[in-house]
Design a protein around this nucleic acid. Structure first.
Lengths: 334, 334
DNA sequence: CTGAAAGCGCTTACAG
DNA sequence: CTGAAAGCGCTTACAG
């Protein structure tokens, strides 16, 4: 068995309350005994049992982070932002992946609650977040949403302005002279996707244009972008430009367009949203709208820690970040 | 505060030992009271405090997974393999990222130990793993290495045959007629990299060839592959083929080669190792040697759970998986 | 089948 | 500055 506080107490010939105080740098303790005990602890290879401590202090110095898809490079970058800020502030982060499944999300939420994390950062799988809110009703455990802006005014979140992402991308395409612009979306019940689509529609409208293509939805996966685009190209007029709901989707769009015998950007311009690292790879050079991924994560971590430290303050903090247009080589003017 | 076993006991008018038994499906309890208590627990919104339970049972149903880089798509895929198998078997996985830093690795190791995970799966940042072994000396907590085969015969691990990866890749290049093949490596003190390099060297030798280029090392990052290749091209004869230590590196190699004014594969063939999902993207079509990424994760999870369940059995289990050559379009015969 | 009691490893008022 | 004692939420022999 591993060495406990009692073992040290015995070795040091003091009460184990004293050991506890020495180890946690309690003020009421003589420098001398403190030093002696610390040395002993080190020599005996003592590691505090955080679990036992948590039972009393109700703090675990742990943050739960739930993301839907570890396979889309977007989320790992957000996770890195969370992790680095949390780490620097003495927190450990528990990363859970739901694979876009609501039941997995529920189970992880429950597991995290059981493990008494101090706070939760979550990028929800779907639009409906009632199960998240109810899971933390009363709200002892603070939660902040990322990559998602809840309708509920009491929720804290940090997200990029999705509407603007869609608007900005479409506007760029319009300025390039495109008028037949299709939208290939991700999950149908994703609020991000819906807002991006709204931005797309409004941008068209501002140019006096109607929706020419009915919205297409699937998953936020390359394969889905590929299949949807195939379908689009077969059953419709060929658009001069396609806006994808995110970069991973855009990769699939490009694949499909080229397989169809069309060139990007010569015949069809393709645009993404997110700016995952691979988008900048020369062979791809995807024109896209960038989200400040790492910053989203850092801010979320900052907010959650602040909330953990002042539990009485329930005012929601909301951060809407600005997207940025990144012009590369998958779009051309016509 | 959240509802505890005592609250339920009071409501049900039984001792809280009975509640505990009812909830954990203990055999010695009447169906009737069990049902009543379970209903009550549900109605009152009870979640067991896993922390308190762990203190007694010494089991947390949690597996720690430590990886060096969440940003290289290779590791997320391994993580997915771990996660899905673990999840299906009732375990939660705590994912930690070390960013290739040894001190971060140490801290996470300690944190995980404090949190009393039942087992640890780790892809070590560097070759020297003495701090990992010493951290779990005595070995109450089983650990299995992934993506890495330790020299220590007592360690369990699952890894692809790195030597064969290097050999297979080089052999393919040789068969294509290449004789000037350079190697762009990752971290210098990575055992995977070293073994891949060994395979490369032996393959050359089997064709009666000497090393023409001195080994180059940096990090397992695209940027590193890019910089190393620039250096290679400036100070040496132009090789006809370059083998990269992994796919991410290979992406950087391609970038550098083309920026240098050379075509891939027309002037220089480029080969990777790993087969990350982006390698198959049509614009990239990277020829590479595939590792069974998800399977590595699944096997590791299977092994660790098995070890958790039979703590007396200390025999190490070692799995060496076979790589597979994936021919795409970045290599040509000359 | 059920209850009273001890205890997991720790922290923290309460005395002195 | 230090110790004795209670308690965090749970499980598990031990009785009955």
């Amino acid at each position: 068995m591993s060495v406990t506080i009692k073992d040290i107490a015995k070795a040091a010939n003091v009460s184990y309350a004293t050991v506890s105080r020495a180890l946690s740098d309690h003020p009421d303790i003589s420098e001398e005994t403190k030093k002696k005990i610390k040395k002993l602890a080190k020599d005996m290879g003592y590691t505090p049992n955080i679990i036992a401590r948590s039972l009393i202090t109700k703090a675990t110095k742990t943050i739960g982070l739930i993301i839907p898809d570890i396979t889309n490079p977007f989320f790992p970058e957000v996770a890195q932002g969370v992790e680095s800020y949390a780490y620097d502030n003495g927190y450990t982060v528990l990363l859970c992946t739901t694979n876009w499944q609501i039941d997995r999300e529920k189970r992880y939420l429950k597991a995290l609650r059981s493990k008494m994390v101090d706070g939760i950062i979550i990028a929800p799988a779907i639009d409906d977040i009632s199960h998240i809110i109810s899971n933390f009703n009363g709200g002892d455990t603070p939660v902040v949403f990322v990559t998602y802006s809840p309708d509920d005014p009491d929720c804290s979140f940090v997200a990029t302005d999705d509407y603007k992402c869609g608007f900005m991308a479409t506007e760029y395409l319009l300025k390039l002279g495109h008028r037949n612009i299709a939208y290939i979306g991700g999950l149908e019940n994703s609020s991000s996707d819906r807002r991006r689509f709204e931005g797309y529609r409004e941008a068209l409208k501002s140019y006096g244009l109607q929706l020419r293509y009915s919205p297409m939805h699937g998953q936020f996966k390359q394969m889905s972008g590929y299949e949807l685009t195939k379908e689009l190209l077969i059953y419709n007029d060929i658009p001069t430009a396609i806006l994808a709901g995110n970069d991973v989707l855009a990769l699939g769009v490009i694949q499909a367009v080229e397989e169809f015998g069309l060139k990007v950007p010569d015949s069809v311009s393709v645009m993404g949203i997110d700016d995952i690292s691979f988008a900048s790879f020369d062979k791809i050079s995807l024109t896209t709208v960038a989200q400040p991924k790492v910053k989203i994560g850092q801010l979320a971590a900052e907010i959650i820690i602040q909330k953990i430290n002042s539990p009485q303050d329930k005012t929601p903090v909301k951060k809407v970040l600005e997207p940025r247009l990144i012009i590369r080589r998958t779009c051309r003017s016509i």
